[in-house]
Design a protein around this nucleic acid. Sequence first.
DNA 1: AACACGACCTGGTAGC
DNA 2: TGCTACCAGGTCGTGT
Length: 263
Amino acid sequence: MPELPEVEAVCRKLRRDAVGACITEARLLRKPNRRLERSVAGREITQVARRGKNILLALGDDLTLRVHLRMTGNLYVVDDARLYSADVRAWFRFEDGRALVLEDPRALGVIELLRRRELSSLLESLGPEPLSEEFSYEAFAALARQSRQPAKVFLMDQSRVAGLGNIYAAEALHRARVHPAKPMNRLSARKLSALHKTIVDVLVDAVQSACIAYAGPGRFEARETFTLAAYGREGEPCPACGRRIRRMMQAGRSTYYCPGCQR
DNA sequence: AACACGACCTGGTAGC
DNA sequence: TGCTACCAGGTCGTGT
């Protein structure tokens, strides 16, 4: 379910609700992990950070709880974890009675405890944050020029750019008028530059939209201000040129694009 | 290096 | 109504 914008919305809310909370007890309901459960007890959540689609809850200086929501996860604070039994896969009870809850119907989400070294190797494996200074055009273009990967596959590779997923990769390509199958090293400087810009634009818009719509429990369905131009619109007219949006498969995922303007 | 594909899981929906 | 097939916002491991 969540890509960078939705994960960012989750993190912003957690910064308000969970930072400073002290964990008294934890349970991973799907796959019990006594070591993790024991290790987090008594620890304070000192910081909430996002890197790509990873949520990083710092528990003091040396330990970090990494949560990845994968397709259907959601992470939020509730007043009483016992009231949210349906798809709750893990809970972390706080001293004040509230609890941090991982809700994840498909149970593909990941929770793990990382020591400092493990955290840095995770961070090293990820490409630049597209909404930070490190996502420069030069760095992006340098990677692109040496890759023959199809543009869509390249954008979804977390080691190239961290945080894009199936929806926003498609939307960035559509805005930049780049065909999803175009090999990255064959894009003109003009197209490459357009793509670099639309990645940022799409994510900025989507973060704003996700933050407005996101309230915690529940899904990320309401995209208040972000309208998808291509994703999920097979057969509908392209808002830019009117040609019908097509769907194709790439790396096992659906890709939506406009055969008229994306070339 | 690049790509296909299955595995991990569950639920929703279109079609018969 | 009930069944089947396919689809889903992610990632990893294996094989070609």
